[in-house]
Write a protein that binds this DNA or RNA. Structure first.
Lengths: 269, 269
DNA sequence: CGACATTTTGACGCTGGTCAATATTGGTGG
DNA sequence: CCACCAATATTGACCAGCGTCAAAATGTCG
């Protein structure tokens, strides 16, 4: 189904560097075949922790199978969800900074990861010219997606956030080799809410509203996406519920929000 | 005033690797003195762009002097502020991912940066054992601060966000060698609002409220911090206006928000 | 001094948070 | 197999925090 097929089940407990690159969907490191290093895999059951905030950093992980959530817990114990890594995503990069993990990573389903030990990172960087590039790009990608999420949260209303979340999640599932328009959410409404800056009730209501609008089907955690493109570009969903058109004029698009950008963009370089 | 003194004004247009490390406040690369590479500086006037979203990635930058804002602009032109880099901060790391910058960086004041060309990064990584570690840590630090900000935005109310923002900004100014309890904001209310997920009016009101509470003094962009610790730990500021203590009981701390964490944290590793 | 950007303050309303009750699922043990 | 319980999800009612619109004050620059 996918060209990016992680070694599965009992047969393979190791990955070559080339396999790791494919998993990450990043260009293969030149000369990767000349190095004999392979990476151990680690299997996790649903609920198991992969990293813990504050614990010493030993390795980076690349998700090969299954779903995770990453989160930070503040002093009062409340947790804030940072992301839902799945196949091909990097986990643990925040530990490079102080050699101590800055977040928790927990498996939401049975899962498997490729373990890239701290030691290997240093060694390979020395022997393989552009191995470091690989790591740079992987971490940098984290930054980019983080910023995209902040943009999403800072700009859109609740329903649009949830819609985008579903579209993005489906897309990522697709890249991982699963069906994109029908899947089972591995996380709770609470976790989605935390991730999107909403409460679980609001997430639930958003699901219902999107279902009423005919954009998705919802049965607990079984989700079906009817119109992915619409979900991705949705800005607002006020037209109350289904067909009932309350003469809502389509011409209310002031969209005059936070605009000053001309001045700064116009500044000479 | 600060041991971390960037070469200033007309005398120095270059920095050694060791100087760059000090600027970043990261442990000095071993053998840094054995390499003769130096990094060019670049001077910018207020309003000038350092990077542009979509432009090819050529170099990383370390801020040596002055203040920046980084932001992304979505399809409609609205901009979302990602951060306010100042002395010692890394700029441009999101360009490593696709060799194309993913955000804009604009100088808010006259400024100066150390230029670390893409080429140098690859070369130094090859010749200097733990140069790559330096870059890893610098980028990883971005991730960590980003996550901290999301936690802040996701958890706190408007006044607390602004309070924390001021405390954090003051702390960073302090590390850069400036006064921490009295400074001039280099950015507008609008930009602060975008950064914190608020409107400019709400930011302005928050400033007024904090001033009424006696925690800060505000005169346009001239800010004075009266009680930094209180600003840093503030959760809510309902007690209407000034000193009038309305018998505020310290025991109202339900803070029973989003708690399930025991289950997951209790999971065996 | 006049045009413009930024900031402050007020009034009002909507989105989404809060509290609460009920339904559905899944797991456990009798 | 069914009773029971905990966790999760759904839905409703209420209301407050913050966004929106508007106007005036202050600062900035030519």
């Amino acid at each position: 189904m996918s060209t990016v097929r992680a070694p599965s089940q009992a047969d393979a407990h190791r990955s070559t560097l080339a396999e790791a690159c494919r998993l990450l969907r990043l260009p293969e490191v030149t000369g990767a075949s000349q190095v004999d290093t392979t990476f151990l895999h680690r299997r996790l059951k649903a609920g198991q922790r992969l990293t813990s905030q504050g614990e010493p950093f030993e390795a980076l992980y690349v998700v090969a199978e299954g779903f995770f959530k990453t989160f930070v817990a503040d002093e009062t114990g409340n947790q804030l969800v940072l992301g839902f890594p799945l196949q091909g995503d990097l986990v643990g990069a925040d530990g490079l900074c102080n050699h101590r993990h800055a977040s928790y990573a927990v498996a939401l389903t049975d899962a498997e990861v490729v373990v890239v030990p701290f030691r290997s990172i240093a060694n390979l960087g020395r022997s393989l010219d552009d191995f470091e590039q690989l790591i740079y790009r992987a971490i940098s990608r984290e930054l980019v997606t983080d910023h995209a999420l902040r943009s999403l949260i800072g700009t859109l209303g609740a329903e649009a956030r949830v819609a985008r979340f579903l579209a993005l999640f489906a897309e990522r599932c697709g890249k991982a080799g699963h069906a994109a328009e029908r899947f089972t959410l591995p996380m709770t409404r609470q976790e989605i809410g935390s991730y999107l800056g909403l409460t679980l009730e609001t997430v639930s209501r958003a699901f219902s509203a999107l279902a009423d609008a005919g954009l998705i089907t919802v049965a607990q955690r079984e989700i079906g996406l009817a119109d992915i493109e619409q979900l991705r570009t949705l800005q607002k969903l006020h037209p109350n519920a289904a067909g009932r058109s309350t003469g809502r004029r389509a011409a209310d698009r002031p969209t005059r929000r936070n605009v000053t950008w001309m001045d700064m963009l116009g500044a000479a370089a």
